[in-house]
Computed example of a mutant assay.
Amino acid sequence: MKKLLDKFLFAVMVLMVVAPAVSVFLWMLSLSLKNEVDTLAYPPALIPSSPTLANFIAVFDGGPFFSYFLNSVIVSGSATLMAIAVGVPAGYGITRMKARKMLLTIMIARMTPAISFLIPLFTVFQAIGLTGTLAPIIVTHMVITLPITVYIVAGYFETLPRELEEAATMDGCSVWQSFRHVALPLARPGIMVAAILAFIFSWNNFVFGAVLAGRETRTLPVAIYNVLTFEQIAWGPLAAAALLVTLPVLILTLFIQKEIVGGLTAGGVKGS
């Protein structure tokens, strides 16, 4: 009886956490399939009376959507790869040096509002003539991807048994060889989780792209903002555009959710 009650309470808690996100997603899906009459109807209805794909067509007709999609892939992919290339060795070094204060400093940089970095970075990129290209967006997105990568990877390296690296050192391996051949393969699940989360955070970022991007280098979140008009808010196309931006990340998360859960739980098991 107690186990049944515990499962019921757990299910209720999960429902309370998930319900708001699911409700917003379903309402966004509903708006994207409604015509203008259904959108403005009162009281509003979740199920459209006459579903239509006109809002999605309007999004593709309103601008080079595939070009913006490619920009987002390039920016998020590049920022993630650069964060992994820099963050994994940094996380390993921080862990082995037990530099917890440095790790805290990195997380403070992640929690600092993006506008604090945006103004000086914009000034620098404008001075060297890079504004309007993808390069400054990729670099600024490392403000998002690098700290989260270092934090996750450092926490994972901390759970790995030191005895394996010490054994490798006794066999003649250098610090770099011990990192490359022993620690790095063992930390693969943690690195995967860090890469996935870094990519998602970069994909959803709006501020840097809105200021630094040009007309042809906009990312998808910035492209959604352009759906808004001064006369009125086109809720249907706006919801359709938001759904198209959310869909790749949603599909990615569904396909690799086992990797995420496995990576997060593996570190906890090894550290116990």
Rank of each mutant, 00 (worst) to 15 (best):
V24W: 11
L33W: 02
S78W: 11
N55C: 09
V24P: 09
F10G: 15
P64Q: 07
L53Q: 12
M13V: 02
M16Q: 10
L9F: 10
P48A: 01
P64H: 10
V86K: 04
S78K: 07
Y68P: 04
L81C: 15
A19M: 06
F60M: 12
D38G: 07
D61E: 15
S67M: 13
A54F: 07
M13P: 04
A79G: 03
I47R: 00
L70T: 05
L70P: 00
F69R: 03
P48R: 00
T39K: 05
A45W: 00
A21M: 05
G62Y: 12
P51A: 09
L33T: 09
V17C: 03
L29F: 11
S72K: 08
V75D: 03
F8R: 15
A21S: 07
L46S: 00
S30H: 01
L53G: 15
P20S: 04
N55D: 12
A19K: 03
L33R: 04
S49P: 01
S30K: 02
T39I: 12
S76I: 13
F60Y: 11
A11T: 00
W27A: 12
Y68S: 02
D61R: 15
F65V: 11
P20Y: 12
V18D: 08
M13I: 02
T39L: 04
P44S: 07
F10R: 13
K34L: 03
S67L: 13
F56R: 05
P44I: 05
Y68D: 01
F65P: 03
A41G: 07
S30A: 08
G87A: 07
Y42A: 04
L9Q: 13
F65C: 05
G63L: 06
T39H: 03
D38Q: 13
Y68H: 11
S50G: 10
L15D: 13
P51C: 10
L46V: 01
I84K: 04
P20G: 05
A21I: 03
S72T: 15
N71D: 01
V22S: 07
F10E: 14
I74M: 09
V75E: 07
Y42S: 03
F8I: 11
V86Y: 13
L31F: 10
L26H: 02
A11S: 12
F69W: 09
Y42N: 01
S49E: 09
D61P: 07
G63F: 06
S78D: 06
N55T: 09
N35W: 04
D38F: 03
L53I: 13
I84T: 08
